[in-house]
Design a protein around this nucleic acid. Sequence first.
DNA 1: CACGACTCGGAAAAGCTTTTCCGAGCCTGT
DNA 2: ACAGGCTCGGAAAAGCTTTTCCGAGTCGTG
Lengths: 337, 337
Amino acid sequence: MPEAKSPNRYTLRDVARRAGVSLGTASKALNKSGTLRSETRDKVLLAANELGFRPNDLAQALHRGQSFTVGLISNDSFGRFTMPIMEGLETVLHEAGIALFMCNATDDPEREKRHIDQLLGKRVDGLVFTGRRADRRPAPGLALGNLPVLYVFSQSDEPDAACLLPDDEGGARLATEHLLALGRTRIAHVTGPEDFEAVRLRRRGYEASLSQVDPTLILHGPWSEAWGREAATRLLALPNRPDAIFAGNDQIARGIVETLRDKAIAVPDDIAVIGFDNWSVMAEASRPQISSIDMNLKSLGEEAGHRLIRMIRGESQGGTSRLPCTLVPRASTTTTP
Amino acid sequence: MPEAKSPNRYTLRDVARRAGVSLGTASKALNKSGTLRSETRDKVLLAANELGFRPNDLAQALHRGQSFTVGLISNDSFGRFTMPIMEGLETVLHEAGIALFMCNATDDPEREKRHIDQLLGKRVDGLVFTGRRADRRPAPGLALGNLPVLYVFSQSDEPDAACLLPDDEGGARLATEHLLALGRTRIAHVTGPEDFEAVRLRRRGYEASLSQVDPTLILHGPWSEAWGREAATRLLALPNRPDAIFAGNDQIARGIVETLRDKAIAVPDDIAVIGFDNWSVMAEASRPQISSIDMNLKSLGEEAGHRLIRMIRGESQGGTSRLPCTLVPRASTTTTP
DNA sequence: CACGACTCGGAAAAGCTTTTCCGAGCCTGT
DNA sequence: ACAGGCTCGGAAAAGCTTTTCCGAGTCGTG
């Protein structure tokens, strides 16, 4: 028994009564369907306006069997990478009149299951999984039926799942070729833990761009500035030190640049440095500012929105696609712009 | 005409039919209401389990006039500060069975209005505004009736709006008193733009902790490392230079620390430095690591969740409350722990 | 003038759950 | 053995919108 209906929430029945027409007529007037005299239509529209009427999406959804709602399940607690994706996704979906449920699963399968269950209860029209994990994720334990599911910046076990990812390998090629174009010949790669697929892909792109690979120039470690500093120190101790470094992300790049600065090694003249992620608070605060590869995560989110809408319409099929990265040159690889 | 109902979505009617009971009986069995023989109840529960039945929240919400849904409207595009708030908020609300709609208004009133309108259509039970802005925000142009509205890390024009904020002033006192406790006497304050209320509050806390204030030691500028570096240079040029610096955020603090490091000034021995925000990627990557003030944004989000739930229950009233900050000492103010 | 056709608005069902009210059947006590 | 009371399950309405179908009224034309 809904006791206290919000004072300013009117129902279609109220509109109809005020306009002096029947329920169905009012509906048709507002939806421009059916055949009505324009006079009647205007009467209804006026009444609706006066009352500030807003149709109840719940009833609408119940009736049409479509909720105009999708769920987003993040596994990195709304971390740095999820944000721009969410932003792009939300923009596109909002334009299509679709609202976004936010859930944070934090890589906890139990929590994820509860979230999915809740979303299914809300009859979402689609589901998006996001959040970089070390590696591919197992399929969620729940039967999702034919609900559209999209993995963004994240992957699934299922072979034909719909995935949307940045082209890490291409980005790495972009970076390496940029360094090659500067005439560098000994290019090191200081990057993150090997159990990230992105790390393996970037490394592959790096290796593919080189005519020959020197394994001593490839260093794996944690994603931190401290590791960048340590790795730089190690590289400088080599008998034949590199003339360029491609870092696996901007934090590592910054650690490298700082160490080179400490040792009065000129960047980019002696050693050029390029990062990955284009995280501006890192890349632009460094001295010199760090060139980087932008994964265009906001575009990735927007593309995810478009693709999900197509899937909801039943138009599109699964499959993995990768969106190109972009080179953002800054002072760490370019001599006086 | 809902044509293709999802294959694995069964309705209560299906459960009832399978259990050989009527609709109402099935409902009562699942909700543990009414008076049923336990045998009948079990029969229904079994059928529901076999079918994987999940009640349709849409219908439920429609019936009870409560959607178990709240909207979150962010004005900083899901920025760095919104994330932990969202995380805390989502955790608490999820435990209460409430789902969270995410909207990004980006300080665009038109966009915000459309979002609110959409949320009202979805009959959300409450609304949360978040996202640091330069200053207080005008009340949204829509009549919200008696819908619970909570401003988190954000403020409203309305005098008795419900606001939840970090205690910037107290945090600044914490920082300043920490420096005083180290025996420092000339404490500078390098901070952000004056049109941020947080900047004014932090400055007030700083001034309140000092026996006398030297205006030449207070510098306003942008929120960046570059500004921290510039301000540090200026402070070092003073005839009577400070022996401690309280920075308005961690980026500024890091800029300061780097400049001091460049000039071989010992931190903290010659000049102690403390930041604000406790942004770990900044504070912990710096050399030395930077002491900071933590606003406990995740707790703020959690508290927001609890408070919103009380408001939805009709228990709580408006008013602004501020949650305490915490001192996180690191190497930039403590000599070898 | 009358009939047919067309225009417009209303009634009703569907979509799914919850809850109240009521009826039927069974048991017990006299 | 019968009446009353209690236990259990079913029927129905409410919550709000959309859509189909149908009836009534009107206009035009023969």
